[in-house]
Amino acid sequence: MGFVDYVQAIIDGLLFGTTYSLIGIGFTLVFGVMHKINMSYAAASLAGAYCGLIGPQMLGLPPWSVFPLSIVAAGVIGYVIYLTCFRFIPLASPLATLMSTVGMLLLVDEIVVHATAGMPQNYPAIYDGDPIELGPFILRADLVGVFLICVVAMAVLLALLYRTRLGMATRAVAQQPVAAQLCGMRLQAVNGLTFVVAGLLGGVAGAMIGASVGMLSPLIAGTITVKGLIVTVIGGLGSIPGAIVAGLLVGAAENLFQAVRNVTERDIYVMLLLFAFLVLRPGGLFAAARGRD
């Protein structure tokens, strides 16, 4: 293993890291608006990607239909999770929402295992052209596709948040829920929509993970949940730019660890990276300003 290989590993990791960024953004969005963590988010995103497979496998649609279907399905699942795990549970019981979303995580996982009989499912690649050569480095075409699609998804999200009324409402609710309500914003509606938007993003992430790994298996959900949460913490709970940067960082770091050590040890070092951040920068890269208590 030489220097070139390590740089190559980092490049691949950065490209794939965008999917972590998306998952991290999803966790962070919901946290920003409701100050709760939706533990089932990553599993639900992957479940959306599984739903996309219904198109080609059962309805005879062309393979590319997987992607839009995944995204829409994940958005719907997001709303269902809002209804079942947040809508009717009092805000003052943080343990209850935590627990209900963990329950949902188990439920979603089990449904997937049931539906697929636990077998890994092949997932179409986003694009299978020739790899692009950049001097000594190679860019895998499908990963570049994943990267581009994730970047577009982030750009759309940011535009939505900062250029539309819905985005303004979301940010207002995140900062001052009471005042926002007094200004006539419907808290429930904004919360629900946030879950849908986060779900759609998750759908993109789930589909892109499937596309770049080449398959989906129930084993992935646990890993992605933990990685997504780590990205959220490293980026700073509630910070979208933080999640983006942290996603790339985690993606690159894990691929580098894998190149230096091996695939089974890789994730241990990712955890250590998290602990290093918790000790040195507990607020994350872009800590949101702490409010008054």
């Binding site: 946290f31 963590i37 933990v226 949460l229 994730d267 000790v279």
Partner: peptide, 28 residues
């Protein structure tokens, strides 16, 4: 000691990651 410097949801995530780290340790 380090974990309790963070609280609430951060702690949930930190401890989750710790649990996973232990599991991965025994995996290796």
């Amino acid at each position: 000691f380090p974990a309790l410097r963070v609280r609430g949801l951060m702690l949930v995530i930190a401890t989750l990651a710790f649990g996973e780290a232990v599991r991965l340790f025994f995996f290796n």
